[in-house]
């Protein structure tokens, strides 16, 4: 085994192209996971049984099955029922939906941590459910959740290599394509690992700073 700098440099442009795809997918699926996760959390807090139960069932089902199988389902099974998704769309929906079930638990915990008195006060001042959520509950519940949600965004970033299994040329996809083409695995995989390590360490540091700042604000 010998490390070849020439080969590493040669594949670097392709890997950077892949990195752009990876970052793009992470950002779009994160927004998806946050929005859908919040809706799941609100639905789980609903008093209407036929809203609460189906959502509980769906989120538990998604949480207990592997992301890879869900991606295959979106990519291979849905076309048979007439729903044709591009690899990128299937990947974003799969990753976003999987992590929405995780973020929904963060949202649920955050919402439950808002004191009951706030709900009662909202009722007492005759606010509609919509205004109660947007003006009273969410503004208090959201800031303490930021570190936990940030950790899930990092986790999603680290999960993106799985998308190469449904033919997306993300960082891992490009690396595997280069590795298979040249039959050299050492350089591509090491570079990908290094890329992930750098991004994860930096983002973990950013989250720590955020946490410290939140603690300062809350006294």
């Amino acid at each position: 085994m010998s490390w070849s700098w020439a080969f590493a440099l040669e594949i670097l442009p392709a890997l950077l192209d892949g990195l752009i795809v990876t970052v793009k997918v992470t950002l779009i699926s994160s927004v998806f996971a946050l929005v859908v996760g919040l809706s799941f959390a609100i639905a789980k807090a609903s008093r209407v049984t036929w809203v609460r139960h189906p959502v509980l069932l769906a989120t538990e089902g998604i949480r207990r099955t592997p992301l890879l199988v869900q991606l295959y389902f979106l990519f291979y099974v849905l076309p048979d029922f007439g729903v044709l998704l591009s690899p990128l769309t299937a990947g974003i929906i799969g990753l976003g939906l999987h992590y929405a079930t995780y973020t929904s638990e963060v949202f649920r915990a955050g919402i439950e941590s808002v004191p009951v008195g706030q709900w009662e006060a909202a009722t007492a001042t005759n606010l509609s459910p919509y205004h109660t959520w947007t003006h009273i509950i969410l503004p208090q519940a959201l800031p303490p959740m930021i570190p936990a949600l940030g950790n899930y965004v990092i986790a999603m970033f680290k999960e993106t290599p799985i998308l190469s299994a449904i033919t997306i040329l993300d960082l891992m996809g490009e690396a595997l394509a280069q590795a298979n083409f040249n039959y050299r695995y050492l350089e591509p995989i090491t570079l990908v690992a290094l890329g992930f390590l750098i991004v994860s360490l930096c983002s973990a540091a950013i989250i720590k700073i955020l946490e410290a700042r939140l603690r300062l604000e809350n006294g």
Partner: peptide, 16 residues
């Protein structure tokens, strides 16, 4: 091991 993604580690274990 937390920073480099399980997927990458699996391929490293099998191919590298």
């Amino acid at each position: 091991f937390r920073g480099t993604s399980l997927f990458v580690q699996l391929f490293a274990a099998y191919f590298v």
